[in-house]
Nucleic acid binder design. Structure first.
Length: 453
RNA sequence: GUCCCCUUCGUCUAGCGGUUAGGACACCGGGUUUUCAUCUCGGCAACAGGGGUUCGAUCCCCCUAGGGGACGCCA
């Protein structure tokens, strides 16, 4: 059975890149009837925060990415990892090193000055120093040959072993380092396929060697090309690396975000719309593109608009209320009103913002309309007879046409100012729809307010 | 600097040796809506460059260029 995992370090919120990694990992597991697990790599005591653990958990939950088991907290395995590191040392697969930070820094500076790749030079590799507290343990990385693996997305990847150094697996404070812990935990969790960003490629080669030293089964690996910011640069706080929960707050639908995210790198013929359910059936790593992609706000907005309009009016009302507190149930014809606004909206918030005139009197003064004062008579004539008609959509429309004709008016002459009177805006649904939704009483009240000004 | 990955319209992508190089977003026009949006019809727009291999290269190989990434007692 396939077992995948998402292994974020809780040193920040979940952002677009991480969310996509989690999604692909989840979908791959589900499409193979496997399990999806979560592991918090929280061994950096300084930077790991409970608050981020919470927000990552909430983000995944919002995206409907379900875990098949409780999350694993790597910090709880520290003692075990240390034990294993020492075991490697006892077997001669790791060695003790007492190089001070100064020595290391100097070594690195000299290498950089000589335009070489900075790495530990193996000074203590064969000295058989006895390991005591305060020393680090380094992994004896194979010197000859190359390390390689077959990436599920990128294909064969091989790097000459001389590119690597004997990296530290146990710090001088006795805690294990990332490349050791991650490998051990993947082994312990029986991970079959590791799916992560391609910035981990060199880590993968390191971890494969650790796993080999541990006599463990090597999982399959799939490295996802990065998601770049719209600028083409790395995703940063400034562009794109927002907290996923901000998308929720800003009125995005998780289904839309998921659909957008999955299309960042993955495709399925010429289809663009996928439900999470469908994705769990058809997702395949073979269909993942090997080149990096850029975040596009436009595309995300397009998806959100689509998904907004997949919802029924009742669902929309509930979502808008939950999101911004605006309750379309409080107005007459709320369902009609919200479905009209949703057509052009990119987010729940936009619907709420756009809707104020359904909830508040716009209080438009006649002078602000910038039209001839003698038009007042026309508008009062219009409202006088509006009072008498049957307030039903076809009837309203019929009446407007008739009125225009009788007064030899073009629509904009009436429509433009009227729309402002009714909504305070130049752009809004059609006049007849507005009148209908607002109802006779409110419509007349607004017109009269302006005329009596 | 060394090593690794990547390169099809502006963007997301299809393509898997022979295609008028397809779709979507964005953009630009027409129609509908006598507003905006929606809807609808149409348009613009790409194989980074150079060498091979081949009867034939977007597709396979090499080089160059460009972009991204990795080189911590962070993860």
């Amino acid at each position: 059975m396939e077992i995948t995992r998402f292994a974020p370090s809780p040193t920040g919120h979940l952002h677009i890149g991480g969310a996509r990694t989690a999604l692909f990992s989840f979908l791959f597991a589900k499409a193979n009837q496997g399990k999806f697990l979560l592991r918090f790599e929280d061994t950096d005591q300084e930077r790991s925060k409970d608050e981020y653990v919470d927000s990552i958990l909430k983000s995944l939950e919002w995206m409907k990415i379900k875990l098949d088991d409780d999350p694993v907290y790597q910090s709880k395995n520290i003692a075990k990892h240390k034990e294993l590191a020492i075991e490697l040392y006892k077997k001669g697969l790791a060695y003790a090193c007492d190089c001070s930070e100064e020595v290391l820094t100097k070594m690195r500076e000299e290498q950089i000055a000589k335009k070489q790749k900075p790495k530990y030079n193996g000074l203590n590799r064969d000295r058989n120093i006895e390991f005591t507290d305060g020393m680090v343990l380094r992994f004896k990385f194979p010197i000859a040959g190359e390390s390689n693996f077959k990436d599920l997305i990128l294909g064969d990847i091989a790097i000459n072993n001389k590119e690597f150094d004997d990296f530290i697996i146990l710090r001088s404070d006795g805690t294990p380092t990332y490349n050791f812990s991650a490998a051990v935990d993947d082994m312990d969790m029986n991970i079959t396929t590791v799916i992560r960003g391609d910035d981990h490629i060199t880590n993968t080669l390191k971890q494969i060697n650790v796993l080999a030293a541990l006599n463990a089964k090597i999982p399959s690996y799939a490295h996802l090309p990065m998601v770049l910011a719209e600028s083409g640069k790395r995703l940063s706080k400034r562009d794109g690396a927002d907290d996923i929960l901000d998308y929720k707050k800003n009125g995005y639908l998780s289904d839309a975000l998921v659909n957008y995210l999955v299309r960042l790198g993955w495709s399925y013929g010429e289809e663009e719309i996928f439900s999470l359910k469908k994705l769990q059936e058809i997702f395949n790593l073979n269909d993942v593109n090997s080149s990096p992609s850029k975040y596009s706000q436009d595309l995300l907005d397009w998806y959100n608009n689509k998904y907004l309009n997949f919802l029924t009016s009742k669902e929309l009302i509930a979502k808008v209320k939950e999101n911004s507190g605006v309750d379309f149930n409080q107005i007459d014809n709320g369902e009609l009103a919200i479905s009209l606004l949703a057509k052009g909206a990119n987010s729940l918030n936009q619907i709420a913002e756009e809707s104020i005139y359904f909830f508040q009197e716009p209080h438009i003064k006649f002078d602000s309309l910038n039209i001839d004062a003698n038009k007042k008579i026309l508008f009062s004539e219009f409202s006088k007879r509006l009072r008498e008609i049957d307030f039903e959509k076809n009837e309203i429309e019929r009446y407007i046409k008739e009125f225009l004709h009788a007064n030899d008016l073009k629509f904009p002459e009436l429509g433009k100012p009227l729309r402002i009177i009714l909504t305070g805006k130049e752009n809004a649904p059609s006049i007849s729809e507005l009148l209908f939704i607002l109802g006779k009483e409110t419509s007349l009240k607004r017109i009269e307010y302006t005329l009596n000004d």
